[in-house]
Design a protein around this nucleic acid. Structure first.
Lengths: 120, 120
DNA sequence: ATTATACATAAGTTAAGTCTTAAACGACCA
DNA sequence: TGGTCGTTTAAGACTTAACTTATGTATAAT
């Protein structure tokens, strides 16, 4: 289906969550958030070989989180934060819990003590 | 270090990102967001065996995203959304990009057309 | 043209993750 | 006390991820 002609694979939602699950990839995003950078430049500040960095960037690219342009023989990567909105949207539905929880914390504590139920 | 005495393993930040990276685990969190539930009840609505669900719950528990109490011979799982704030906090530093981007989109488009540089 | 540079991709290895089935465990039930 | 119910843990097969080294490709420099 997606191998046909020039069809673009739809941005799978899951990929974004998975892409940011890796500390290394989050660091890459962080570095790119200050300025666009070449692969070499990104790899320098890393305890990782250049191909490894290149591979991680490919994953970020597939998730739509970075884009690359050629500049001479360099490839300049740039952050594209937009897909992160997917995560933000997802988080929104949970936000009420930590606001609600803070309000209800006092009573909860009392209640659970009485019930003699232990949460772990 | 963390195996000593009764020390609690510090909540590794990374675990939360990783815990949430799995669609199955996000579904579990979703189910628990409506009400606390037993493992059996969670497994029912899943194309997954009960032990598999139990294992995923263990991962969520290690990330601090759920807690469990015993109720008779059942184990009732409950959402604890608080660790998600870690992700929310992380996202905050990127939020400016998608607000900024919308503002700057018009000029960017013009600029890149002129430069004849393609982003992918 | 040849060589060097910057990067991507391929191939192979090792480690992690995720399922399944089977066994173990703890609480209740007869 | 023995059984069974709900769940966890263990063990193994299998998949996916992530690195390394080696090779390929495009651009630039000489």
């Amino acid at each position: 289906m997606y191998n046909m002609t020039n069809m673009v694979r739809p941005l799978a939602h899951d990929d974004v969550f998975q892409a940011v699950a890796s500390p290394a990839r989050r660091t890459l995003l962080d570095k790119l958030s200050s300025r666009e950078q070449t692969v070499h430049s990104l790899a320098e500040s890393f305890d990782m070989t250049l191909p490894a960095v290149s591979q991680q960037l490919a994953i970020l690219r597939r998730a739509g989180l970075v884009s690359a342009r050629r500049a001479g023989r360099w490839r300049v990567y740039r952050l594209n934060a937009e897909p992160l909105r997917e995560i933000a949207r997802w988080l929104d539905s949970y936000q009420r819990f930590w606001t609600a929880r803070l309000k209800a914390l006092g009573e909860d504590l009392k209640r659970y003590e009485k019930q003699d139920e232990r949460w772990r």
